[in-house]
């Protein structure tokens, strides 16, 4: 009987946890489909509308531009960071070169630097170069937080791959570069994909850099949220619609690689 109680208690707790996590997200999704008037009521009885999405994509909000900025900035950052990080991670993982520990520590320790420290000089530099409010500026600064993180993560994945296959390939007649291309990359592909998605999420959600470095042309989605705070007050239904636009692509990615995702979260950190 007691065991029965514990069993139900555990299920109840699981439900509670899921509700606490899902509720804020669900509420935002609901609000995104409400008319402005309904948004201010707590009633679940409303007729859903797509009007908010139409509004945010139209003038003056032009969410489409922000989506484009976010997509470009995140994609380009991933395309630069991940290949470079993969090579470095392989080197850190497989070779015992002089100064390796120091270099690795140096790269890791940059993770502990607050973003404000990095963005100050960049703000001044981009101001001089006339690069403020450009996607290029955002990409450069995003590389700063993303690259060390991705090196760390991919190294965790490569460390977990046994070296046997690589050695076999070298004996079979492959050069080191050939080994990387034929053996390491295909074997590390799930890890590299996971790291890419992590990298994409970090960049996509990045707020501080975009807040400081963009004004109008290069504004990304998270910063775009702030613009729905007007003199007429906060436009919650529009904010929610924009929130849905930020959230949906990321949720899809995270859920697609769900298994690797949790492994990626703990990769490196636990070791």
């Amino acid at each position: 009987m007691k065991r029965h109680l514990a069993w139900w208690g555990e299920r109840a707790l699981l439900v509670l946890v899921s509700v606490i996590v899902l509720f804020p997200i669900a509420w935002m999704f609901l609000t995104a489909f409400k008319r402005p008037r309904d948004a201010y009521s707590l009633s679940l009885d409303f007729s859903p509308t797509l009007q908010n999405f139409v509004t945010v994509f139209a003038d003056p909000w032009n969410l489409g531009d922000m989506v484009l900025n976010s997509v470009i900035v995140a994609t380009v950052t991933v395309l630069i960071a991940v290949p470079c990080a993969s090579l470095a991670a392989y080197s850190f993982s497989r070779f015992r070169v002089r100064g390796r520990k120091f270099l690795f520590f140096l790269i890791l320790s940059t993770q502990f630097i607050p973003a404000v420290v990095i963005v100050l000089p960049f703000f001044l530099m981009f101001r001089t170069l006339g690069l403020l409010d450009t996607r290029l500026a955002l990409i450069v600064v995003n590389l700063a937080i993303v690259t060390p993180f991705v090196i760390w993560m991919i190294k965790g994945f490569i460390d977990a791959i046994p070296t046997d296959s690589e050695e076999a390939a070298m004996i079979d007649g492959a050069s080191r570069l050939r080994v990387i291309k034929d053996i390491v990359l295909p074997m590390a592909a799930p890890g590299i994909l996971t790291s890419s998605i992590f990298c994409f999420i970090l960049t996509w959600n990045e707020f501080l850099f975009a807040l400081i470095l963009t004004r109008r042309d290069a504004v990304t989605l998270p910063v775009g949220l702030v613009s729905f705070r007007t003199e007429r007050g906060d436009l919650w239904e529009l904010m929610s619609a924009a929130g849905v636009m930020i959230t949906v692509p990321i949720f899809i990615m995270a859920l697609l690689i769900q298994k690797h995702f949790t492994r990626g979260m703990t990769a490196g950190a636990v070791k």
Binding site: V21, L22, I25, M28, I201, W204, N205, F207, L221, P222, V223, L225, V226, G243, I246, T247, I250, F251, M253, A254, M265
Partner: peptide, 9 residues
């Protein structure tokens, strides 16, 4: 999900 969600949001 929470980790994947934008902190600003």
């Amino acid at each position: 999900l929470p980790f994947a969600m934008s902190p600003a949001l």
